[in-house]
Design a protein around this nucleic acid. Structure first.
Lengths: 139, 139
DNA sequence: TCCTACATTGGACTAAGTCCAAGTCAAGCA
DNA sequence: TGCTTGACTTGGACTTAGTCCAATGTAGGA
């Protein structure tokens, strides 16, 4: 059973077959699906689910802070259910594979006041880019 | 005169009125325009320039490493001519303002081997998010 | 000046996402 | 259990960002 689903239920979310399916599709580690991918997988379990509902549901999950939106490539946004453990992303520039990673240190501490331009900073996002092992071997 | 334009000329780029205008529009610090914004500004100087040319030209500048593509918001990509000084971005979540910033420290060093999953990492991108001073006062 | 390879154009096309009016249904209440 | 109702879902039209291509134009070398 999905942790994500449990948490959503606990927030008084009205439970529908559509939302359940979206939550189930998004369960797991290193999951970074686009909205269309979520829809494609949801359709296999609930053929009549619409794209609009998938977008609505993903948007609500993001608003509730249960899912994170990731824009690693300037194409479609990806949805990451690993919202309760702070982490960053490691992206393969060739195949697009994405891994969640946890760097040590506090990147925010590296930004001196003189470089903050008076902003109140609330969040730091780090994307490591490179080549994954399987792309490296099939050069 | 634009530094960017000088560098492009030095690479044997065939110089056309369109390319000159795009390069001029992209000159300066803290410049992060979308392709459409570049086009809108280019049109005021060269009314017949087409969107396709703006996209082509921006794409070439990125390939040549003279301009950086920035995807801070999952909407339109932005183009940053500050390609020769390594820097990161500070983004206002309310008005979308973007500043170039130079953090101290090496974020790559913060990622232990055990968190690299065998990737060869070539690049690290950091986005600081918060509220800019003028949005903070007009709460 | 002429040639030609490279650049530009505009319009059609695709991908990603939003919006909306009409229909459906979960869940609390009697 | 059966209503009722407000929240949810639907599909299709629409918007935005970007790509593609065949026809046309032109920078720069000979």
């Amino acid at each position: 059973m999905s942790d994500l689903l449990e948490r959503l239920r606990g927030r008084g979310w009205r439970m529908t077959a559509q939302r359940r399916v979206v939550a189930e599709v998004l369960d797991g580690d290193h999951v970074h699906l686009t909205a269309d991918e979520v829809h494609a997988r949801a359709v296999t379990r609930l053929p009549e689910i619409s794209r609009a509902t998938v977008y609505n549901t993903l948007g609500e999950m993001v608003t509730l802070g249960e899912v994170i939106e990731v824009a690693t490539d300037g194409r479609a946004k990806r949805y990451d259910p690993n919202a309760h453990r702070p982490h960053q992303h490691l992206v393969c520039g060739r195949c697009g594979a994405i891994r969640d990673v946890q760097p040590g240190g506090d990147p925010l501490a590296d930004l001196p006041d003189s470089e903050r331009f008076g902003f109140t900073i609330s969040e730091v996002e780090v994307t490591y880019r490179g080549i994954c092992p399987s792309c490296a071997t099939t050069a």
